[in-house]
Design a protein around this nucleic acid. Structure first.
Lengths: 172, 172
DNA sequence: ATTCAATTGTAAGGGTACCTGATTAATATT
DNA sequence: AATATTAATCAGGTACCCTTACAATTGAAT
């Protein structure tokens, strides 16, 4: 039976981490272009990342994999098209579908930004990194379970595997 | 010299954590009111939290402590007023200032929501919790340093202490 | 006491990340 | 051929943030 105090401390640390990371992010990128400062793991960034795993997905596929609505997906894709990071083209097999592909610039952006190890991890030694990885694995497993439990129709099952595999690919 | 591979794994795990936590959050709260699902550590929630540490701050103070612009602060405060979670009143000493105070409902909301230990931490045993706390402390310290380095005017110095003390108070 | 500058807050407008609802076009089913 | 399903779009909305004015108040300098 783990100590409640330790749990609360951890909860606090985690929140602190979230807040401070956000502020640090703003502070260190204050100078650079605001538009470039998108997180790779939300919105447009997510799409870029998904495409860098497997290019040429349909919008529907993207929405499913990233757990977004079709409308949000369309919005982000259109923004990325404007920025010349992806292209849209109608599928010839099923002309309802739109196939999204990374441009060279898009691929470059995705791989560059995704594979950088954040500075704050560099203060950890090997042992701590092992511990951290172990702990996060446990936590993530738990989160997947929570999702499964409340996702009776298993809409997420596909998405889950994609995230797991994807993350592995991006970084290794 | 820590192993790059381990660092990359940690970076990946962390990203996975972010994505999965987000999805789990949506999944488990799908039923409940969308409006209730605000994060306590952004926007309106941040303000509630700051006030629950020290009530009766001016908008300016809030903005400073939370690292928000005065305009964003005003927006969030106004939304909270509409929800009857805080009140605004002009200071008598300096009539430029507006003093923000929690209502009973606001105080209740803040303390209830802030002090809950997320389920995913309950899978960790005491040893892991210790490791996790130790690691997050290191990481947060590093982030504070990054902030200091790019914050020559030390605008954030105040904020920093507030976060540290505040988090300690909320959870202990 | 008057003027001027700094401080607090507001108004207006913009951008990103999401969502719901209604609608169109293409394919699949009956 | 008629109907149902699917992929995508349009319209409109919320929350979170910011920037660029601008008004009111106060305090300091003349």
């Amino acid at each position: 039976m783990p100590n409640l105090l330790k749990q609360k401390t951890a909860a606090g640390k985690l929140i602190e981490f979230g807040m401070v990371r956000h502020i640090a992010d703003n502070a260190t990128h204050k100078d650079s272009d605001k538009n470039e400062r998108r997180s790779m793991f939300q919105g447009q960034g997510k799409i870029l990342l998904a495409l860098s795993q497997s290019d040429g997905l349909s919008q529907k596929e993207l929405a499913t994999r990233l757990d977004l609505t079709a409308q949000s997906t369309a919005e982000f894709v259109n923004k990325l098209v404007k920025k010349q990071l992806v292209t849209k083209e109608k599928s010839t097999k099923d002309r309802r579908m739109t196939i999204i592909r990374l441009t060279d610039l898009g691929r470059q952006t995705a791989t560059t930004e995704a594979s950088e190890v954040p500075d704050f991890l560099k203060v950890l030694n090997d042992e701590e990194l092992d511990q951290f990885n172990n702990i996060l694995t446990k936590i993530n497993t738990q989160l997947y379970e929570e999702i499964d439990n409340s996702d009776k129709q298993n809409l997420f099952s596909k998405s889950k595997q994609i995230i797991k595999d994807g993350i592995r690919d991006w970084f290794l």
